[in-house]
Design a protein around this nucleic acid. Structure first.
Lengths: 257, 257
DNA sequence: TCGCAATCAATCATTTTCGAGCATATTTGA
DNA sequence: TCAAATATGCTCGAAAATGATTGATTGCGA
């Protein structure tokens, strides 16, 4: 039996029976479990089926979850590392600002520092930090945006105008060689107010955001002090980056310096 | 059965039956309660369902269905009935204000009105209402008080000063013949600002609060329009109440009128 | 407010499964 | 035929899943 033939029949079997174990398939096709695993891996990459611990199931079986959480999980590793790096910037006694976003949420989840004040406009981040007795939490009021879980609008912006923070951690949907962008104008306005209120502006975004440009520009690089990311940029990008900006770039191995 | 299959079926079961207990699910899927708990935790993180003490409920059920846990009903009967009564005051298009407190939280839990705007300074209420697509949510910013989960301080008060709401629902730690009181000065200040911003002020408090006087006075009866409670006052109290105030008293049987 | 019972989170040990690396076998193309 | 590429099988340490245990929480009634 040819490899491709076997893969096709595995796919068909899983589609028909909705599930199959590795050992079952190994016996069925007289192949080793290693081979079956490799086949399943390939089929999963093709989006044909869904692997599980012990075998595989048809895609529809596992399809109860909303798509956004899957995406969140895919990038979770990068966000986790970015958050860990960002947290190293924090010093006792500082006032920090956490933008609404999945990466900044990860910062909140990993929060360990005591004796600091955290300002946020994110409901999820506030919930996450509300149980930490050792920090002061300040909420930016405003209208709720269900899509991102953020509070936005003039109240949030005006409140930011009366605050001053040491570091603002900003997420971004798009990062390009001019600055950072985000899809929603209201959120962009709040983010801009955050930039204005902060001594240091730190962008937290993984590398996949590079070269993506969303609808509204939030800030240009001359307003930003640092970009924390999950790994080094490709050499070409890196040289261009160094040439065009003076922003510090931090990632979790040597290259970014 | 694979883990992912089990999780999918748990999710489906909860969606169909609206609620399920951990032991029930453990028996159903021949797994330990530890495993079920882990599954529920994961499903909750994915936003598929709500965990509760003892099991889980479908998300939309946790929102307004008060019967998801028989035990809980009996115990929180007072708050539940007060909340149900308070909700009958709400009309479409209104702007409502929900104070931070356990009774007002119960109002949020039972919320079923569409096309209204809800303003709150409570993190828990905001979290509870954040999943309701059909209403506008406005948060009052400020400093977080861990003890009550409320945001307080000058920002919240100033923001209230710029808002106008149709009805303010206020909780109270103490209700006496002069008005309502609460232990914390900062929260009292916010509550006073709420009173000022509202067309109608409705106090939600069970009868056990009567004759209790906490540290700081929030409002006197001439500033309050209505008291929603869980049952009639004893006859003596009732006569004194009628004699001394002009506030409407509402409870869930005839007596209070 | 207190205590009791139920439930939970955190942790550990065990079992199963996986993945990376390596060696072997098979195919391909010159 | 030989060499390179590909496919396969095997091994072993790592990771995942599970169930049991334990101390902490929570809900609830007195």
């Amino acid at each position: 039996m040819f490899a491709d033939e076997r893969k096709a029949r595995i796919a068909q079997h899983v589609l028909v029976h909705k599930r199959a174990t590795v050992s079952e398939l190994a016996q069925m096709f007289q192949a080793s479990e290693s081979t079956i695993r490799r086949d399943l891996q390939e089929l999963e990459e093709q989006g044909v089926l869904h692997r599980t611990h012990g075998g595989a199931v048809a895609k529809e079986v596992a399809a109860f979850e909303p798509t956004w959480s899957e995406k969140r999980i895919q990038n979770q590793d990068a966000k986790t590392r970015i958050a860990a790096l960002a947290l190293e910037l924090v010093r006792p006694g500082q006032v920090l600002l956490l933008d609404a976003g999945t990466t900044t949420y990860e910062i909140a989840r990993q929060w360990r520092h005591e004796g600091v004040t955290v300002v946020t406009n994110s409901l999820d981040i506030a919930s996450e930090l509300s149980s930490r007795r050792e920090l002061d939490l300040v909420m930016l009021g405003g209208q709720f945006r269900a899509k991102t879980g953020a509070f936005v609008g003039p109240f949030a912006e005006r409140m930011l105008g009366e605050l001053h923070v040491d570091i603002a951690f900003l997420g971004a949907n798009g990062v390009d060689f001019r600055g950072i962008t985000t899809p929603n104008p209201q959120e962009a306005a709040v983010k801009r107010a955050m930039v204005t209120s902060a001594d240091r502006v730190v962008v937290v975004a993984d590398r996949t955001k590079l070269h993506q440009t969303a609808f509204v520009r939030v800030a240009t690089w001359d307003e930003i002090d640092m970009w924390v990311s999950d790994g080094p940029l490709p050499d070409g990008e890196w040289r261009q980056w160094q040439a065009e900006t003076e922003v510090e770039f931090i990632c979790d191995n040597e290259h970014g310096g």
